[in-house]
């Protein structure tokens, strides 16, 4: 079930600000399990799983983002080539000749790139702002898209060896799959308080959705799931000077980003739960890359936030690699952390 959901979630299109398709899919997957399922003005989908009420007034938010990086059509040329703008951080080294879906009609396209023997010397990786998309049209009339339409990357989802799967958009969708898995786990064993689920919009362009969702939900604590770059690649001379996040190493409990310190009580809580429940985990102390959890902490009069990273190799490419055991262990960790969380955990 988890695997099937992950594949569907990965394959759905949902470039930041254009999350309609992925939101609809999550609505279907969540079905009637969450109460008050609502799409807010930012495009966040949220709903609540009622607890037994034994701890009244306590509200916890769990969030993962629905959106993915991609492009937006800025102009359709007379020759049928489509000019685009980047949506979210894109690494062009991964995207030369990438396959894409253009607009809601999903016209098939390819990122234009001259072949090396006819390139007139244009062999450098193109700047993201110079990208054009070729949909095979012989003129403007052959293009169904218009400016503002989103362009989504196509990732061929596949199962690989050693429990790994390949796909696009794992940065957000792995977390979405974990949250959907968590719903079933919590229905089987209800918590004493309400858990609010938020599938957030526009994370890749500055965590805009998460902040609004947190303001609406007004939780006493929040856990944010997201992808984190797995850098467990061969290193020259077995260099041992940098931190390594490994596929299969378990969920990555996050300490910080350059603009945010995760709540130390929730960091300690996650660590304790991982150790007592024998969930493998790693620690992610980040030197760069701003994570969405920081903006949740900004909501209203401040929300304690814990962040859990799901390790993904080649994360900003259409060919991310994810270890299914990390996904399962993320659900276990978050489930355990919620089950053990009480208002007293957050007392000063």
């Amino acid at each position: 079930m988890l695997k099937e959901n992950l594949q569907k979630l990965s394959e759905a299109v949902g470039v930041s600000g254009g999350e309609k398709e992925i939101r609809q899919l999550i609505r279907e997957l969540v079905g009637e399990k969450l109460a008050e399922l609502t799409t807010d003005p930012m495009g966040n989908l949220s709903g609540v799983l009622r607890g037994t009420g034994a701890v009244p007034g306590f509200r916890v938010m769990v969030a993962a983002h629905m959106d993915e990086t991609g492009f937006m059509v800025s102009n359709v040329g007379e020759n049928g080539m489509i000019s685009v703008l980047p949506v979210g951080p894109l690494d062009m080294r991964y995207l030369i000749t990438a396959r894409v879906h253009v607009g809601e009609k999903k016209q098939n396209g390819v990122l234009l790139w001259p072949p090396i023997h006819k390139s007139n010397g244009q062999n450098a990786v193109p700047g993201v702002e110079t990208v054009q998309i070729d949909v095979g049209a012989d003129g403007k009339g052959g293009v169904s898209a218009s400016p503002g339409d989103r362009v989504g990357l196509i990732g061929a989802y596949a199962e690989m060896g050693a429990g790994l799967v390949r796909g696009k958009a794992f940065n957000g969708r792995a977390g979405c799959a974990a949250l959907i898995g968590l719903i079933d786990a919590l229905i089987a064993a209800p918590l004493p308080y309400d858990v609010h689920f938020a599938f957030t919009a526009q994370e890749m362009i500055g965590a805009r959705g998460a902040r609004v969702a947190a303001h609406r939900i007004d939780p006493q604590a929040a856990f944010v799931l997201r992808g984190t770059e797995a850098n467990d690649l061969p290193r020259p001379d077995n260099d041992d000077s940098v931190a390594v996040i490994r596929l299969g190493g378990g969920p990555a409990i996050t300490i910080n980003d350059p603009t945010f310190m995760a709540d130390r009580r929730l960091v300690a809580h996650l660590r304790e739960v991982a150790e007592s429940d024998n969930v493998p985990y790693q620690i992610d102390a980040r030197e760069n890359g701003v994570i969405g959890g920081g903006l949740v902490s900004f909501a209203r009069a401040g929300v304690p936030v814990g962040v859990i990273g799901l390790p993904v190799r080649y994360m900003s490419s259409p060919n991310g690699l994810l270890n299914l055991s990390d996904l399962e262990n993320t659900i276990r960790l978050l489930h355990g952390a919620l089950a053990a969380l009480r208002p007293e955990t957050l007392e000063n």
Binding site: P258, T259, F260, M261, R300, G302
Partner: peptide
Amino acid sequence: TQEEVGIRGAKAAAFG
């Protein structure tokens, strides 16, 4: 709290 990483605490205090 957290002024040095992005003026976080004051934001929450002002809202509250």
